[in-house]
Design a protein around this nucleic acid. Sequence first.
DNA 1: CATTTAACTTTTAAAATGCAAGTTAAATTA
DNA 2: TAATTTAACTTGCATTTTAAAAGTTAAATG
Lengths: 134, 134
Amino acid sequence: MTKRSDCPISNVLDHVGDKWSLLIIRDLMFFGKHSYSELQNSDEKMATNILSSRLEKLEKEGLIHKQKDEQDKRKKVYRLTEAGVDMLPIMLEMIMWSAKHAPETNIPNQLVSRVHTDRAGLIQELTEQIHQQP
Amino acid sequence: MTKRSDCPISNVLDHVGDKWSLLIIRDLMFFGKHSYSELQNSDEKMATNILSSRLEKLEKEGLIHKQKDEQDKRKKVYRLTEAGVDMLPIMLEMIMWSAKHAPETNIPNQLVSRVHTDRAGLIQELTEQIHQQP
DNA sequence: CATTTAACTTTTAAAATGCAAGTTAAATTA
DNA sequence: TAATTTAACTTGCATTTTAAAAGTTAAATG
């Protein structure tokens, strides 16, 4: 997506304004997924060519990076960059929106109350967890 | 967009996971735009048929509603519902992301510092402003 | 050595997007 | 009051993107 304007919101959408990119980031962020095949097995079942093109785009835009797996040379390890990890507050607010307006979704309950009582601490804690992922 | 999974993030993307929907919400929220022609004149220049189909989708999904303009019978007035207004924290975090990672965009500066010092107060204040829009 | 696994790529049909032009009702201007 | 303009769309069509299925390649496993 080429830059459409100087708006900061439009800018974020230029990176992740589609149905799939944020789900990839979600899986890397919350579910400890780091390989292509793990990413392919999400509930939403994204097509493999779309996954491939999104990974390429996200890497080119600096939200994720790809390393070789030294144990298994067939594998690639996908990880969030700092810019990718910094999508966390956006994701949290999406969860909060659904907690209010789509409570039938799978809301992680302690997370919602924690956002209200200790937002900054929660974000710091989750950020550390993301960095400590194997 | 039909429901893809029970994930709260996926759910939000089912509503606004495209390049345009959140820009419409942005214009209604921050720029006091309320008519079709105003929405059409954003910097990003969305095509009129896309604007039309997104307005229809957002209305069907309960994020905006459409009223008749009693002064000018040609006009329709578009407004955010509560669910639409509640997208505000997501938008704020997008601005914050760009403030950090795309500082060349037009960041409203006092807003960024205010998010750090008084997030809850800011959101309440902006929410009230949105409701008071003419 | 044969099979499986991981990470893709390719093909092709269907759907969405973008652009230009057209339509309709209401308001404004001459 | 007739002609023009404005607002909110809709339509048609070419281009792009997505989705689904099948195929490829290198590395690991039995």
